[in-house]
Design a protein around this nucleic acid. Sequence first.
DNA 1: TGATTTATGTATCGAATGATACAGAAAGGA
DNA 2: TCCTTTCTGTATCATTCGATACATAAATCA
Lengths: 202, 202
Amino acid sequence: MSQRGRPRTFDSDAALRRAMLVFWEKGYEATSMADLTAAMQIGAPSLYAAFGNKADLFAAALKTYKAEIGLEIWNALSKAVTARQAFADFLQQTALAYAQPDTPRGCMIALGVLNGDTDAVSTCELLRHCRLENATLLRARLEEGVRDGEIAPTADCQKIADFYATVQHGMSITARDGATLASLQSTADAAMAAWDALTAPR
Amino acid sequence: MSQRGRPRTFDSDAALRRAMLVFWEKGYEATSMADLTAAMQIGAPSLYAAFGNKADLFAAALKTYKAEIGLEIWNALSKAVTARQAFADFLQQTALAYAQPDTPRGCMIALGVLNGDTDAVSTCELLRHCRLENATLLRARLEEGVRDGEIAPTADCQKIADFYATVQHGMSITARDGATLASLQSTADAAMAAWDALTAPR
DNA sequence: TGATTTATGTATCGAATGATACAGAAAGGA
DNA sequence: TCCTTTCTGTATCATTCGATACATAAATCA
């Protein structure tokens, strides 16, 4: 049980968090191993021994991202009592997270890598899976609202979920372009203006 | 006036269009000069002589993109009589363009490059400028609607423009993830469900 | 025809890429 | 103390990156 050999001289979690920030800011492909070793302040062999190759490190960094940053956004979806409030909070938390002054703007999942035909195909698929998974979470909350009688049974939950997922994706780009927190909140507010029409019986 | 020297053996416009497709599909950074020379079917020296460096070629390809693909989307904004119809058409044309089976999915401007701190900073700024410019076009159409009495003078045109620009940005990512034309049209439809609330007097 | 100009094809440049070989250092186990 | 195990630092691997040098080919001009 006791660990043999020379112990690590760096904090693995702290190094991973730094790697996450670099990937988040520059995207997967634009981030070089030199960028990572510099930010993590470890040598290349230590990096490969601890985290595997570049794709493995990205996957680990993504897991940290989902556990630390994404959690607040998606918790909002389940905390609120009504579906409407859940989506409003979800979008507001998104605006807040995407405009944080001490982290890269926008979402690591949305901006990590978007082109699927390079050698980063597996990483691209990983992010695509995350994005589709998020849309599924939105749809599940909507269906819960239907069961609660809050949303009309005739409402197209898939359509509504896709719409709000698309808005969130767009907010990443808008945030990366320098939009203010107020502007992002305003966009979140505008998206909620469609709620009544989308969830009413037709 | 008459051109001296050995004439070109390739069609410059056709080569540029092929370069545009590669950039559009893979993004700026993920596209290598080898990819471009292969697609354009010309040697590297011919490429550099005709189009300058990689950033110059991308700028030229972007210009072609805006003139050929983007035109249909943005023409919809000015053709329609009412602002509401203009935005509805704008979104529907976006859905159509982003789901074309014979071209890369999504928008070259939205997906070209999103990370700003690499050596591609000038290209990133170029695309950012295009995106902000597009939002300005949306706002101008809204203000026209205000002057026509269609939209309440109390409406926040900047907010509404940012919202629809964000939706369009998001549609690029959703389209790249494989959304069907029907799904994109459905999202466009959902975005228009917010129109009345956004443009009504408050 | 000879001179000039421009484009093409081959071959390659230095730098950066992701990833390792290797030797030495620092711990536990016997 | 000696052996095994694991990690660290240097130095470097082969490959790919964007970009060119150079010689040759093909056109116009005089």
